[in-house]
Amino acid sequence: MAAPSLSELYGDCVRSAGHHPSCDEFFRIFRPALTRVARRVAYQYNSPHQAEDAEQEVNLKLLASGETILKRLPAEPVDALAYFSVVAANAARDFFRALGAAKKGSAVTVSIDTQLSALSASLGVSPDVDKSLIIDRINELLPADRREQIAFRFYYYQGYTAKEIAAIPDFGLSVKRGGKYDLPDYQGSPGAFSQ
């Protein structure tokens, strides 16, 4: 007999108000993702020491809002896990907001100034030229594909790192040498954008 899915385990757990053996199995499977989400949210709120409290809060939320969550739970196991993670992140954020914890500043990433300075040489413009001119030049050279345009904007306008862009699940982005996102080649080879 096939083992029950995560959604089935959760359903049994909710319907028994947390008293079914499925509860233990559900939390055993979900705990690594739950702990990671709670820890990362706690870090964003400058409160890593309260990660365990946030995790406990998420546990309670998952049981207290069980019926609502069950109605919206996707059928696919992978999506279900993603949905539980989203619920966990929301509950953890609510926990820290209720405590009045302040969110820390943005994560350390490559700054767009650095990117634009490196690009300026490739684009044949002075490093001191107004940044808006460089951005205009990039706009002229953007690829036709919508996703590629988004990737360029994330990278050059919003200062995203290649790792951050690649971490977006639906992006379908692969970064490989000689590929469209092979940024150092653009930087090192004048006119490469127009190729």
Binding site: V37, R40, Q44, A82, T109, Q158, E164, A167
Partner: peptide, 9 residues
Amino acid sequence: LREAIEIFA
């Protein structure tokens, strides 16, 4: 979105 990526990566 960046903060969300940080959480779910």
